[in-house]
């Protein structure tokens, strides 16, 4: 933990808890998205795309490992990255609900990825300036990866949007389907507010403005329509998920759950 937080956290239990929650949100989002992308490996539309999607998955799993390791240290209960990834149930996961949505077709995966990438771009860019030096270092590394992810996903968004009548229709449908999960990306709660107050995390409203402009520009380039904002009943970052996450975790955690205490 950084000096700034260590100094602040000891007397302020609530801040400490908020930081833990904040880091888990970031880590769980990368983990669940990486897990989803892992489902693609071997099944992509071309061999080259197979390698590309695997690279995204690897980066995201890597980010999750750094973030969950850090979360375990903040928590101080000797839980490492695997204890956190494999031995928590859905309500204890705090990823954004967008990350857990099923892969669907390639267009749906691209739209989900593009929405997540453009979100991570804003968050990681700001987190580089975080007063929490550990988080700033992780963000600096992750940002490089995210820039490439965004290049990949926004490129495909334009190809599919502009390509054929079928691809246009499929990718617009995916945008329409997934849009309802974007409300959560910038909905600030007391955890976010605490992080902003001590300079650990950026204000989400600023990030949202940048994100929105970027997304509009990409949608225009892909000749796609931006759906209307929709109120959302999912609060993945508060542990309230769609039904999909349970299945993701059941599959991911099954060996650890079946053989308690075994080393792998």
């Amino acid at each position: 933990m950084s000096r700034a937080v260590a100094a602040a956290a000891r007397p302020d239990r609530a801040l400490h808890e908020a930081l833990l929650r904040y880091v888990l949100r970031l880590g769980d989002t990368s983990l669940v998205l990486g897990q989803r992308l892992g489902e693609w490996v071997g099944h992509a539309p071309t061999l080259e795309e197979d390698l590309g999607l695997a690279n995204l998955a690897l980066d995201l799993i890597g980010q999750a490992r750094l973030l969950l390791t850090y979360a375990g240290e903040i928590e101080g209960r000797e839980r490492d990255e695997d204890a956190l990834a494999y031995l928590r149930d859905a309500p204890e996961f705090f990823n954004l609900a967008l990350a857990e949505q099923p892969n669907g077709d390639f267009g749906c995966t691209i739209v989900r990825q593009w929405l997540m990438d453009s979100w991570q771009l804003e968050i990681y860019t700001s987190l580089q300036e975080s007063t929490d030096s550990r988080l700033a270092a992780i963000a600096a590394k992750a940002l490089k990866e995210t820039r490439y992810h965004y290049r990949f996903s926004s490129g495909w968004l334009v190809r599919l949007g502009d390509g054929t009548a079928e691809s246009h229709e499929r990718v617009q449908r995916a945008v329409d389907e997934l849009w309802r999960f974007t409300g959560e990306l910038f909905a600030a709660d007391e955890v976010d507010e605490r992080m902003v107050a001590v300079g650990i995390a950026p204000p989400l409203s600023t990030a949202e403005a940048h994100w929105s402009a970027r997304v509009d520009e990409d949608l225009r380039a892909a000749s796609l329509k931006r759906p209307a904002a929709q109120p959302y009943p999912w609060h993945g970052k508060r542990g309230v998920h769609t039904e999909h996450l349970g299945y993701v975790l059941a599959e991911m955690q099954h060996l650890q759950r079946t053989y308690p205490g075994a080393r792998w």
């Binding site: 983990l31 897990q35 892992g38 489902e39 490996v41 071997g42 099944h43 061999l47 197979d50 390698l51 695997a54 690279n55 998955a57 690897l58 799993i61 890597g62 999750a64 490992r65 969950l68 990255e81 695997d82 990834a85 494999y86 599959e251 991911m252 099954h254 060996l255 650890q256 792998w264």
Partner: peptide
């Protein structure tokens, strides 16, 4: 890629998961 790719989502640790993705990816390469 398929028989091992099957286990990417079920790999029992995050380290094993990353290694397996990289390995199956290599096979594609």
């Amino acid at each position: 890629m398929l028989p091992e790719g099957n286990w990417i989502t079920r790999a029992p640790s995050l380290r094993r998961k990353a290694v397996l993705i990289a390995k199956v990816q290599d096979e594609g390469g």
